[in-house]
Design a protein around this nucleic acid. Sequence first.
DNA 1: ACCAGGTGCTTCGAACTCGAAGCACAAGGA
DNA 2: TCCTTGTGCTTCGAGTTCGAAGCACCTGGT
Lengths: 164, 164
Amino acid sequence: MAESPPLLDPVQLGAYFALIEVVDLLRHAIEQQLREAGDLSYVQFQLLARLNGAPEGSHRMTDLADGVVYSRSGLTYQAGLLEKAGLVTRAPSPEDERSVTVTITDAGRERVQRVLPGHAEVVSRMLFQPLSGKDVETLAGLLQPVREHMRSTPPRSAARRRRR
Amino acid sequence: MAESPPLLDPVQLGAYFALIEVVDLLRHAIEQQLREAGDLSYVQFQLLARLNGAPEGSHRMTDLADGVVYSRSGLTYQAGLLEKAGLVTRAPSPEDERSVTVTITDAGRERVQRVLPGHAEVVSRMLFQPLSGKDVETLAGLLQPVREHMRSTPPRSAARRRRR
DNA sequence: ACCAGGTGCTTCGAACTCGAAGCACAAGGA
DNA sequence: TCCTTGTGCTTCGAGTTCGAAGCACCTGGT
């Protein structure tokens, strides 16, 4: 039987490894900055930022979990921490008694504002410093379709919950 | 006082968010595949792959930790698991009594070979499907300098260990 | 009106992660 | 030689993560 050709050529491998490594290093740097500047984990920051940008400053738990790449149970845990810290409130939704509406508080908005400059600074310095404006546009243009592709493609052997 | 301009423009924000999200989604998919195909976590796979590619099939702990973005203690833990699973052996280095040399076993190599095709398939399908060959080259070309930049730039307020 | 299946969230247990502290060896100057 | 400092790894404790299971509510068909 013939040797099946490698599914990834060297260029692809390089892109793949670089992608993973770049994001790992970036995340570490960001996490450290957020911890020092505002005692937030990256997930917590993402949640607050998302709420801060929402029309009413609130979202359902599920929408939050879908937005961030995160498990439901993990979200419950983090939402609990944020609530305990007074950065967020949780209340059952009026329309659907099952769902919980998470709303950012003033303290939460302040916290986001507090860490935001440092956050932007880290991203700018670590990620964008070696890239020209043109490069960034190109990068964004390449990643956007990939993002959409991944979002639209179900996890193959998917079954968020056992389907009948 | 004047409003300080945002440190990140919309295009940069888009690139940044897409980058993070793409890698998060990719990692999840990969992790699931590795777990199903070979009962490996992503870190374990990375470690085995690195050892598999090494000249002697071995590395010192520190070199492994530096290669992967990972804490020392975490590496000790994972190396322990891999050893327990018989995929790797650990032995004190002959030259330096302090350091530990990790070596991949035949079973370890087999395991890598077993999961590799599926791994490549997932990466290919999720990441590269929406990209042309030219796109991939461009992406690799953009990320390479960023990777080097991050690697060479120390964590700013760095001090891996308390410096005097 | 019932009730079977679906959905939203939480709880639970097990596993993983990290940094700080600790141990042992190494290296280099007094 | 000693002894101070540095390095390689492990241990420890606390915090975080996930999936499976569980509970409550909602929906649509009969």
